[in-house]
Amino acid sequence: MAVKIDSDVCGHIENCPVQGLCIKLCEQGAIIEEDGDVKIVPENCDDCDLCIQNCPNQAISKA
């Protein structure tokens, strides 16, 4: 099912209070950094929802 990121709300690493907390939290490699932005790799997502729960901007939700 994976997750989706609301681009309008997301801090895009640069403006994220924790500079990409979701990337740091996801140990499955389902959220990665690409060209200075956050990118979702749906096939790696385990639907643990850690990113959804902890995003400081509440920009992540179920896809």
């Binding site: 907390l21 740091k24 939290l25 902890n54």
Partner: peptide, 11 residues
């Protein structure tokens, strides 16, 4: 606060 990121030393 965000207990999981704090516990993991991310914040």
């Amino acid at each position: 606060g965000p207990v999981v990121p704090i516990a993991r030393g991310l914040i």
